[in-house]
Simulated assay, not measured.
Amino acid sequence: MKKTFNFKRLARRTTVVIVLLAIAPLTAQAAFIDFSGSIKGGSTLFGSMPAPFHAGDALTGYLEIDDAAAQPGARFDNSDLLGWGLSIGSVDFTQSALSTSLFSGRIADDGSALSSFELGSLFVSMPNCENCTVGLTSSQTGFIALVKDFCNPWLSGLIWGQLDTDLRVPPSIDPPTDVAEPAPLALFAIALVFIGWGMRRRARS
């Protein structure tokens, strides 16, 4: 039995390939906001630093948000959050968090950093404090955090310090510079159609 060439199948597959190539550059990206800073001071009701923090402890972390919410001057909240991480001193809040929290902030007008950021009361388990909350508010250059110890309220207090933020889109997910334009894609499709037509004529003969 002579095997005939399935022209319709080729056309369908060609259409699928063209559509996938066309929408690939439109895939959503993620923007990252990196934190770096350190504690400059802190105090409880008794004047001591809230445990387990110390002056000089590093603050590091990041926010991963939808890049549509990372435009200059734009505001973002939990609905834009894709991931996060935060460590202050020996405490990794990402791992010790006992609940989710409310995140909100605003991108600086030049689009390079945060102009403000707020992390609502986050329940955490820390050394010497198994039932605590931490809330953090920051400006473009500094932060202040309220640490509440529900087991030992007299150990609750504030810590504050310097904070730098940097907004970036990882190069690995930047739109490629050599994406095929619609015109070459159309020529590619036409070429496939003609190849299929030729193969079909040959099969008939």
Rank of each mutant, 00 (worst) to 15 (best):
D77S: 15
V193A: 15
W154H: 12
T177R: 09
I18T: 14
M1H: 09
I190C: 07
D80Y: 13
A186E: 08
G83I: 03
D174Q: 05
G73H: 07
A28P: 11
A22S: 11
F32S: 09
C132F: 00
T137M: 07
R168P: 03
R168A: 03
D80N: 15
E181M: 02
L136M: 10
G161P: 03
G198N: 07
D164P: 05
K148C: 03
T94F: 08
H54E: 05
L114Q: 02
S125R: 01
R202E: 12
A108T: 04
I88Q: 02
W84V: 08
F188W: 13
A108C: 04
A70E: 02
T94A: 05
L86P: 02
A31Y: 07
D164K: 14
G120I: 09
F93W: 02
F76L: 11
A113N: 10
R12Y: 14
F93N: 01
A58Y: 04
D164I: 11
L86R: 00
A203W: 09
A24Y: 13
A145E: 01
L119G: 00
D34M: 14
A189G: 06
L192M: 12
E181I: 04
G198V: 06
T44S: 07
S36N: 12
D57A: 00
R168E: 10
L82C: 04
D66R: 14
G157A: 04
N131W: 01
S139G: 12
T141Q: 14
G161A: 05
I190H: 07
S116R: 10
L185E: 07
D164N: 15
V91Y: 00
A30K: 15
A68G: 14
D164S: 14
C151N: 13
E64V: 12
L163Q: 06
T100R: 15
A58W: 02
T15F: 15
F150C: 01
F194C: 11
G47T: 11
R106G: 06
K8E: 14
L136A: 02
